[in-house]
């Protein structure tokens, strides 16, 4: 892989706190190595800002290996930037070239209010899980792990849904700010397992109700969420959620 350095123009959303009005601000960074990750480029910029006596840009990040789901930048019109099946922290500067202008915005959704600069509040996702995204089993009640065989394809499909990292890119990408991909990943994960069976109906009903309460939009199957999901969660999970919902709604007393 050929290494190179580049100079870039950055247009970054700055907003002091939730109650203030934000605006874009232009920055220039120089001698950025193509080996750097996108967040390391932001580290360089922040060091520069601190040196110049400006406030550094606040952004969410933690594991920097694409699994914790904390990072959340909307880069040049796409959540997590230009690469497919990727998170911002795993985006590397190889994706850009010298002289590029990069626009960086926070996730935009009423249900994800901006905390500061590029940081948003995603606690709505926690509350959706609280509404039923679990299997009610107390510690110490479990039977042997092999007591209940689960067909490999079912287990694999359940795992594919459970891979969701809860980053919120699906909401950010959706024109309706819908959280259906997130929600359906959890519903699918648990509905596909025999352990999830007893609470199958109440789970989907309650989680959808909570999602509506949090102020997410409804799904119109545009597929933008699937296209941007770092873990490539499939849109078919949304269809499964719909089925679960209809079934639960029709049969629930």
């Amino acid at each position: 892989m050929e290494h190179y350095t580049m100079n870039l123009n950055l247009k970054v959303w700055r907003q002091k706190n939730n109650s203030s009005k934000g605006a874009f601000k232009l920055y220039r960074v120089e001698n950025i190595s193509s080996e750097m990750s996108f967040l390391e480029m932001f580290d360089v910029l922040n060091e520069q800002l601190i040196h110049d006596g400006e406030e550094p840009i606040a952004f969410d990040h933690d594991c920097r290996e694409g699994i914790c789901g904390t990072c959340s930048m909307y880069i040049n019109g796409k959540p997590h930037g230009p690469w497919q099946a990727n998170t911002t922290c795993q985006l590397h500067m190889r994706a850009f070239k010298d002289g590029d202008t990069i626009v960086v915005e926070p996730w935009r959704a009423g249900a994800f209010p901006v905390i500061k600069d590029l940081m948003v509040d995603r606690s709505a996702f926690d509350r959706i899980i609280q509404a039923g995204g679990y299997i009610s089993v107390n510690t110490g009640n479990a039977v042997d792990g092999n007591a209940l065989p689960i067909a490999k394809d079912k287990a694999d499909e359940s795992f594919a849904a459970a891979m969701c990292i809860g980053c919120g890119a699906c909401v950010a990408a959706c024109k309706n700010s819908s959280a259906m991909l997130f929600l359906s990943a959890k519903v699918s994960h648990l509905a596909l397992l025999p352990q999830g069976e007893p609470e199958r109906k109440s789970r989907v009903m309650n989680m959808v109700a909570q999602m509506d309460k949090e102020g997410f939009g409804s799904c119109t199957n545009t597929g933008a969420c699937e296209a941007t999901c770092p873990k490539e969660i499939s849109l078919t999970h949304i269809a499964r959620l719909n089925k679960e919902y209809i079934f639960a709604g029709v049969t629930e007393k």
């Binding site: 679990y134 042997d144 792990g145 065989p149 490999k152 459970a162 397992l193």
Partner: peptide, 16 residues
């Protein structure tokens, strides 16, 4: 056992 009961999708063999 606890994790399986919680729905952790561990890798499985074809026999389930």
């Amino acid at each position: 056992d606890q994790c399986v009961a919680q729905g952790v999708p561990f890798a499985r063999e074809y026999g389930g």
